[in-house]
Design a protein around this nucleic acid. Structure first.
Lengths: 208, 208
DNA sequence: TAGATTGTTAATCGATTAACAATC
DNA sequence: TAGATTGTTAATCGATTAACAATC
């Protein structure tokens, strides 16, 4: 077998795969079995050629004349994105936002289980949220290490976010979803994704 | 005066401007008066040349040998992003997430005021959240038109999100922050920004 | 002056798109 | 077969980066 040229997939492509997956699940839910790049593009306000190109990075999932089989493509995308198994996630900070996340049922069906909740406030520790007991920050390291948790969500006030990030990274967390509106600094091997709605609003007002 | 060539600013640049602004506000808060592209880049894990290029699209805000004056640059970026005045925002859907947004104090300092809350549930209508009374969906159109609201946040369950979007667009809303995990279809003149934490998580797990 | 840093150019790099042969 | 649609190529398009003269 010839040596395969190492092709690096652009991050833009990966972002779009998650978007395709979301749309494919909608199609699946309404009983559609196949979809063409043309129709998927129409639904997502994208270009058919781009969808075909993105998907072809990973293999020929479609059939000429027919399109892509919906459930097979969902299966393949879930595998590519490594969400064919469920990831356990730890949430740190049980303010209004953390509580909303703890109660939200939309993670499980898409590959993630809110599995652990932590807060520094003794008033909050011990409370139950969707069947989970809020744990003390004292137990953070031991719990995450024992359970091999690789994903954390930071929903503490900004002034504590960096310290929380340090502790999470310190016990092996590799991906952080950061709701605090500041730039975290983390080692190169850790992925951070900010969720900052204000930045998104500011972007939109530019065009208005 | 010669006709200026129409330069279009890329959306990537606009996204980064909001990031620069956030970091500049941190610097301002700790009393820094100037910052170089080099230092800002270090803080944001970006390249100095890109920061200079982005900023130079809008004018020469810096000085050779010195860097950029922090508060002047904040002033200019706020003007460019059109957040030198405050925008009133309507939130539709007072579930856990909507309540978290209603209670969050972090919008006001960055250009946005959560000004109106709506919910369809009669049990919820009339409740107070951070001094605002939750209004009935019946009053949506009249309220938004009277108050000239241009920005909406959608925090209703997915199955109602498109209908809510239609109604918001129907009364002149131009920008939607959509927390429902689906693709909204809106006219071309309306901006939609999805906030879907699961998509962000799925992107990160790809690399893990 | 010497050192630092901008604004801008030109070169590089990468991403998107149109087009079409292959084929269902 | 005729019509539809993929996978892939080549061309276009746009974004990033390095480099440096200008200048604080």
């Amino acid at each position: 077998m010839l040596a395969k040229t190492e092709i690096t997939i652009s991050d833009n492509t990966i972002r779009r795969l998650t978007l395709y997956l979301r749309s494919l699940n909608e199609l699946n839910a309404i009983g559609r079995t196949t979809v063409s790049s043309r129709e998927l593009a129409r639904r997502l306000d994208a270009r058919p050629a781009q969808i075909r190109k993105d998907l072809s990075c990973f293999g020929g999932f479609g059939k000429q004349g027919i399109g892509y089989p919906v459930s097979f493509l969902i299966f393949q995308l879930e595998r590519l994105l490594k969400i064919d198994k469920q990831w356990d996630v730890a949430v740190v900070g049980l303010g209004n936002l953390g509580i909303a996340i703890g109660n939200y049922s939309g993670f499980a069906s898409r590959g993630f289980r809110i599995a652990w909740l932590f807060d520094r406030d003794p008033q909050c520790v011990g409370q139950e949220i969707s069947g989970l007991t809020v744990l003390s920050m004292k137990d953070l390291e031991s719990t995450l290490l024992e359970n091999n948790i690789k994903i954390g969500m930071i929903t503490v006030p900004s002034r504590h976010a960096q310290e929380v990030a340090n502790r999470l990274v310190g016990c092996g967390v590799r991906a952080l979803l950061n709701y605090a509106p500041l730039n975290l600094s983390v080692p190169d091997h850790v992925f951070v994704q900010d969720i900052d709605p204000v930045m998104q609003l500011q972007r939109m007002t530019y065009y208005m």
